[in-house]
Design a protein around this nucleic acid. Structure first.
Lengths: 231, 231
DNA sequence: CATTGTGAACGGATTCACAGCC
DNA sequence: GGCTGTGAATCCGTTCACAATG
């Protein structure tokens, strides 16, 4: 149960299991085996069992996992049992799109504010969220005790904005700006760099080996699948 | 030189080296050592040397790497020496934002078309790119020999759209839809899943250990990412 | 003599194989 | 009998240490 001992690879897979369980529960499936979860996710059954075993013994030998029970457990493990407040820095195309997306489709987060430095954008509305000046960020982050931010400002502005965010109390950052951010050790950064994803994809286009057309379960394994893209 | 032998981790780092070299060249730095590249990227100097060594011996012992030369090499390796045509499926918030971004800021790609199924969106313009019906995708993809697509349609529609895209000739997909795509083995998929990134970030917020505020070079290890620290 | 290029050592994540249990 | 949970074996990327060299 020691969070610190668990690798990032494992943590990245938990939300995928959660999504699959959501689908299963919607289809009123009550029990699921690790083998079936493997089919749905593309990860091996052993890996799934091992991932879950880090946090406890949630299955029933001979039967599999109860979908509702396992979902509850995973929600608790990730910390999604209560909505997480988040803020967005950057009200450009991407920032606005992400704000709309999370507002509409992400039941686990509560998008609190959207900041921008550009006076022409400040005051604009995205649904019922007003674009606020970056100057107001530290106060709002502190008073509402917000820990998570998305960064969608241009690369040149990203470090500056991040410094402000961290000073205000942000502890986890989803960074869409194509730069390496320097942050204190206790701040977690996940980079979501569209350019990198796109460029590495282009690499693979150079190698046409047009094998046989056989379906392949690509469970987004990527080794340690990592970066998220966008930006 | 067998592309298939090189790990995805290595390929994902190449665009990062490329970006750093771009910055260095803009600042008119002519030579760079692996140690300095390490400082800029957060990866170890040994890893950088090893990554580059997969493709050849680009450095000069005792001196380092010539920035212009190395950049040319990396551009060639990735396959960015000529603009890659790409298409986008999904003209919603995210699709539109990504279209604008690539149109404006990505010199290595040429955004050819934007497809959507919604008749209300078809015919709309994003800069000078017209939103086209998905029905027109296979023909256009084939006639222009397009290999790369971004998918930003809703999860329910993603598999269907991907099947159409692959049939048309798409060989690499950057998938923003929160589903596992089933594709033939010769099609590469990179998943760019905002929800997963955000949720795994929330996991780390549960562990406050507010250590000392010391700067940490987090080179977005992704991949090889290991056990996390915290507390 | 600083720095690259690389075989060897290491370590962590995945896979294997099976014991444990419903 | 079937499926979970897990120690052991394996695989593979990273790090180490140093020989090679401009």
């Amino acid at each position: 149960m020691d969070k610190r001992a668990i690798s990032k690879s494992v943590i990245k897979r938990l939300p995928i299991y959660l999504r699959i369980l959501d689908h299963l529960i919607r289809r009123e499936v009550a029990m699921i085996s690790s083998r079936e979860l493997s089919n749905e996710s593309g990860f091996t059954a052993e890996q799934i069992r091992k991932d879950l075993a880090y946090f406890g013994a949630f299955g029933t030998r001979g039967a599999g996992y109860n979908t509702l029970y396992l979902r509850e457990k995973i929600i608790k493990i990730i910390g999604l049992d209560q909505k997480t407040d988040i803020v967005v820095f950057g009200a450009g195309n991407l920032g606005t799109a992400l704000t709309r997306y999370n507002y509409n489709k992400n039941p686990y987060v509560n998008l609190v504010a959207l900041f921008d430095r550009d006076p022409r954008l400040v005051g604009g509305m995205v649904y019922d969220i007003e674009v606020m000046s970056v100057e107001k960020a530290p106060g709002l982050i502190e008073s509402r005790d917000i820990k998570v931010a998305m960064i969608t400002v241009p690369a040149e502005a990203a470090q500056e904005v991040v410094d402000i965010a961290v000073k205000g109390g942000i502890r986890a950052i989803l960074n869409f700006a194509p730069v390496k951010l320097n942050v204190p050790e206790f701040v977690h950064v996940h980079n979501a760099d569209l350019t990198i994803e796109l460029q590495s994809l282009i690499y693979y286009c150079g190698t046409e080996s047009e094998g046989q057309i056989k379906e392949k379960n690509q469970g987004e394994g990527e080794k340690g699948e990592k970066t998220l893209p966008l930006e």
